[in-house]
């Protein structure tokens, strides 16, 4: 199965607009939204949710406060400062700060009273939906949730399964910004990663780091400069940098307010006529030829 992953490094460069357009143009693809933090692909594709599952991942320590002897041994061994004197309990006791707990369980055997246990966290949900552009697997991480990388991996795994079940030969993955755990999860196993980058100083800086990530994990990569005419010189340097990093520059997309106005109408760029729509269609042709 072919797997095209859309990434950017910097946020807001047009990943989702490109991914949703590709979804509409391809007609024979399964879709995965691996930006589980701020999942937007479904907003343009009218999803009907067919299946919804709770996502549990990772553990966190829980202290039975009533029995706590306030000895502070747990706080002494925790490297993440996650065990702190409770400011809500009626008498002195230590409690776990779940924002800081990494779930290592080191405190559990150290507690002289044996009153710390590990509990699974619920950190979100994932969904399998039908959309007008094909089946979509997407997710929603709880606010302040952890393990977004694992959830992104799960979304991709389920989307591969859906693609196989329906005999679809292509998986399109809308990736997250950044180069951290969910970006790594999104690009693993890709046949091609397409970077969507802006010709700005930060766009150039972030693209370099993202391209470095693709190189680190040896994934073939291509580049689309979005809004290239905002700063044509920077667009040239982006592509020059890309060639140097073994990333193939493809069709550019111009700055066109119709991209945002299409989004406001709940449509993808290519479902309306505009200069940018033509650019994206040309880009899709090049991507499929690659």
């Amino acid at each position: 199965m072919n797997e095209i992953v859309i990434l950017s490094g910097k946020g807001g460069t047009g990943k989702t607009s490109v991914a949703a357009s590709f979804a509409v143009l391809s007609k024979r693809a399964a879709l995965a939204d691996a930006d589980v933090d701020a999942s937007n692909l479904s907003l343009l594709l009218d999803p009907r949710v067919r299946r919804k599952e709770v996502y549990r991942a990772g553990l966190e320590a829980v202290v039975r406060l009533e029995e706590c002897g306030d000895c502070a041994v747990c706080a002494g061994v925790c490297r993440f400062n996650a065990l702190r004197p409770s400011d809500t309990h009626t008498r002195p006791a230590f409690q776990v700060d779940s924002f800081l707990c990494e779930g290592c369980g080191r405190c559990v055997p150290m507690c002289p009273r044996g009153i710390i246990e590990m509990r699974e966290r619920t950190v979100g949900e994932w969904m399998e939906s039908d959309t007008r552009a094909g089946p979509l697997v997407h997710a929603r991480l709880e606010p302040a949730g952890e393990n977004s990388g694992k959830l992104a991996s799960l979304v991709k795994r389920e989307a591969r399964r859906v693609a196989a079940e329906r005999g679809l030969g292509l998986l399109l993955v809308d990736g997250p910004p950044g180069v951290g755990c969910s970006a790594i999860a999104a690009l693993s196993g890709a046949s091609l990663v397409l970077f969507v980058a802006e010709p700005t100083v930060s766009g150039l800086h972030d693209f370099e780091r993202a391209a470095d990530l693709a190189r680190h994990f040896t994934v073939p990569a291509a580049l689309c400069v979005n809004k290239w005419d905002i700063h044509p010189v920077a667009a040239d340097s982006l592509e020059a940098k890309a060639r140097k990093m073994n990333v193939r520059p493809l069709q550019r997309v111009r700055y066109d307010p119709s991209v945002v106005s299409a989004q406001r109408r709940g449509k993808t760029v290519v479902e309306e006529d505009s200069a940018a729509a033509q650019d994206v269609r040309d880009l899709w042709r090049e991507v499929t030829a690659a």
Binding site: V36, L141, A144, E146, N147, S148, P177
Partner: peptide, 10 residues
């Protein structure tokens, strides 16, 4: 950082 998960909350 963008998002709303552990990186943003940190």
């Amino acid at each position: 950082p963008p998002g709303a998960s552990c990186a943003m909350t940190a």
